[in-house]
Write a protein that binds this DNA or RNA. Structure first.
Length: 105
DNA sequence: CCTATGACTCATC
DNA sequence: GGATGAGCCATAG
């Protein structure tokens, strides 16, 4: 693994996530050799729409706070498996199915 | 160099 | 199931 800037690593990993899949901040951080889940979110927040940040969700499968609506729109558009909360207002990504592992099979 | 903040995570009540 | 506290890491001032 090539040591690069944290931001670059996050960018590479997130952009490597195919449509219909999703990952958690902690998984992305651990993948790049760090536990800085918050730092990952920081990069996504500062990045543009070119980076599929909506494919990165929290440990519970919930999209970033304040952007749930935007993320939900992308999920429906790309066909990401979603789950509904009991109330229906809080939706989350079905990580049981959509979980991405960088190296499939 | 030290402090403060953040699109997080986990353990506990 | 929801709320609270503490931990961890990276960036900015």
């Amino acid at each position: 693994v090539v040591q690069r800037d944290f931001t670059t690593l996050v960018y590479e990993v997130v952009s490597a996530i195919p449509p219909g899949r999703a990952m958690t901040y902690g998984e992305v951080a651990a993948m790049i050799g760090s536990r800085a889940a918050r730092a990952v979110g920081r990069v996504l927040a500062h990045s543009s729409d070119d980076l599929p940040w909506w494919r990165v969700v929290r440990a519970g499968g919930y999209p970033p706070i304040g952007h749930e609506k935007t993320a939900l729109d992308q999920y429906e558009k790309e066909g990401t498996p979603l789950l509904q909360s009991t109330s229906g207002s809080g939706i989350r990504v079905d990580l049981r199915i959509a979980r991405w592992n960088e190296e499939p099979q």
